[in-house]
Design a protein around this nucleic acid. Structure first.
Lengths: 187, 187
DNA sequence: TGTGATTTTTGACATCCGTCAAAAAGGGAA
DNA sequence: TTCCCTTTTTGACGGATGTCAAAAATCACA
């Protein structure tokens, strides 16, 4: 929990009241490897903070799993579309490692927004950072070669190789596992 | 200006004071076809609302222009990364048609956030919608074929064909103009 | 340590797409 | 209309990537 509060200060320094209100609204969730945090078809009611562990988000298309993001320590995660719209999720979130998460419901978060302007500001600023990050990923996905995307991933998340299977990484990069293997073999 | 205020109500209904404060902070900008709204290397100080017209955002890589978005009526536009961080822009925004825009500076917007909690909420909610839209574009870019992406674009923005050259559209789809031409010729 | 399951690599082949080059079509101005 | 410039299409070719199949390496757990 201290990790979460400490991390949040990177976005925006909260008042003590806001901080303690936040403290009261998050609940710890501990799950083990391969379990599911969110399953497609079900409404996603929580926003999670990942204190320790690793997750992946994926769609299933024609029976194939398409991993579209990974999350590690200090990431906020949820099925964003479902959390915001409160419609059924179209994606799954699975544990790649045993993980410790902190969860807050949408109702509680909305309530916090009403009570504490600075919490809404914090989230507004967090959205800005996450938007910029996604925009960068988008440009990479669309306009760089598979080899460049792989290099990029290694630079930004060097330890991902030790924590995530190459099959999942290939899927994330939008290429086949065989192609990733060949990219790696020619350095 | 009424268009802007009317459009904003789709996101969140503002108090009268907030609405009139907003009203005072936007300034009209009129530019003609092929002019630049934002040039790479320059800091982007404004967020724009596009009342009438069409724009494109693009990077230059190895002397080639890579269009990564289009904007039409009722879109908010800016070089997002530059506007948020106030660093130099890495992209250009160019007019595809003569356009009417409404501009607000970052300073004024931040000031509005402090004065009006509901304006910050409005923007927080707008970010959510824009994030979801980008997420969808990301998944499309990464995991769909060129032909599917083209079909998708036509469904979402049917009139784009009449307003944007095929060269720009091909660039936006991440394919060469020749490939787009072939996709179109086989329906 | 041994065994079976999973992950990763390698090979062969077809397909999609980019590039270069040139032709065709379209648009604007006198 | 005619001319010129821009946009779009078409053709030929090569390279990158996907798919299928099988071998090799690694991992999990008894």
């Amino acid at each position: 929990m201290q990790t979460l509060l400490h991390h949040i200060k990177n976005y925006y320094p909260l008042s003590e009241e806001a901080e303690s209100a936040l403290h009261d609204c998050f609940e710890q969730t501990v799950l083990s490897k391969n379990e599911y945090l969110i399953t497609e078809g079900k409404k996603c009611r929580h926003l999670y903070f990942l204190e320790r562990g690793a997750l992946r988000g994926f769609y299933t298309v024609d029976g194939k799993e398409i991993t579209h993001w990974f999350a590690f320590e200090n990431d906020f995660v949820t099925s964003f579309h479902s959390f915001i719209t409160q419609e059924a999720a179209v994606e799954n979130i699975q544990l790649l490692e045993g993980s410790i998460l902190w969860a807050i419901t949408k109702e509680r978060l909305d309530h916090l927004f009403n009570e504490h302007h600075d919490i809404e500001r914090l989230v507004r600023i967090a959205y800005e950072k996450y938007y910029i990050r996604l925009e960068e990923r988008y440009v990479n996905a669309q306009f760089k070669t598979a080899a460049e995307r792989y290099e990029n991933l290694l630079q930004q998340t060097p330890h991902i190789i030790e924590r995530v299977s190459l099959g999942h990484i290939a899927s994330y990069l939008g290429i086949s596992q065989e192609t990733l293997s060949r990219i790696r073999s020619r350095h």
